[in-house]
Design a protein around this nucleic acid. Structure first.
Ligand SMILES: [Mn+2]
Ligand SMILES: [Mn+2]
Ligand SMILES: [Zn+2]
Ligand SMILES: [Zn+2]
Lengths: 152, 152
DNA sequence: TCATAGTTTAGAATAGTTCTAAACTGTTGA
DNA sequence: TCAACAGTTTAGAACTATTCTAAACTATGA
């Protein structure tokens, strides 16, 4: 009578400001990723409800501080797998360090260089107009806006 | 009668599409940087007239292919010194690699991720509107737009 | 329960960049 | 002209973020 793997699907749950979001387990299933202890823990931290910006190291620190043992290699693997699955997106603001964003919708960022901290700007807020047509043979993939801010 | 250091200042010269620009030597002098063989060679490559985007490695390859011996450490030092002096600006489009831009005026970029290649978009072209006020205590330092493009 | 494919992990390896400290060179003023 | 000094270059070590390797482990489903 094995009891170990009795994880039941509670596909969707309510969180935060009444925002509907899928549980870690549901997200993993939908992506064809096995719900391992490590992935469930990381998904739990990432998808608790509010949008987050993490680096591999910050997430590894966080999961470790929570008393869960996950290797840094697994954190990197998981961040990339989640990104491929469309659960995360990568944000480039700093040469030398990768940020991952749980908000995969259309939006832009404030970036505090000094603290390495990102703040979302909703997609409808900023308007980027008159983007010229790219050179022959190229197509626009996305337009990223980074508003770099400093302590006043 | 030492002839070695007889470098005379030709402060400004004409290049390209009739654009006025200072010679490498003049730029170095104005920045208080000693006109060493290495800096003069690198400034020569960077400020020949047309705007350029380089990485430390691409510039090192280029100067090396030109038959000039400059260490990679010196290329890094020089790129940073030129940036501090306002002769270059750094462009962040890729986590893991730094680009330096000889165009220090207001402009934005197309970025071809696959080739690691940047193309300028003149500053007057793109309009970014409705940038929200940054959180209390912070001031906007600059707004960067990166139009990521792919082979169609 | 078993076989299998997928997953995790320690540690090695890599890429880009920065640091160190010793040798070298441009500048200055005697 | 030329020492003296500060600034510069450089090889190689060191460092940071990230990826790779390959062996141990585990979820799955038959
Ligand atoms: Mn980080
Ligand atoms: Mn590069
Ligand atoms: Zn975001
Ligand atoms: Zn440019």
């Amino acid at each position: 009578m094995a009891k170990e793997s009795g994880v039941t699907a509670r596909d969707v749950s309510r969180h935060g400001a009444g925002r509907l979001h899928a549980s870690g387990l549901a997200r993993l299933k939908a992506s064809g990723l096995r719900p391992t202890r490590q992935r469930l823990e990381l998904a739990g931290l990432l998808f608790r409800g509010c949008d987050r910006h993490v680096t591999a190291e910050s997430l590894h620190d966080e999961v470790t501080r929570a008393g869960v043992k996950v290797s840094l290699a697994t954190v990197y693997n998981t961040l990339h797998q989640f990104t491929e699955a469309g659960l995360l997106r990568q944000v480039v603001v700093d040469a030398g360090r990768s940020y991952f964003d749980t908000n995969v919708g259309d939006h832009q960022h404030f970036f505090l260089e000094e603290e390495g901290y990102l703040i979302d700007i909703p997609g409808e807020t900023i308007a980027v107009s008159n983007v010229p047509a790219p050179p022959e043979g190229l197509a626009v993939d996305r337009v990223d806006v980074v508003v770099r801010v400093k302590r006043a």
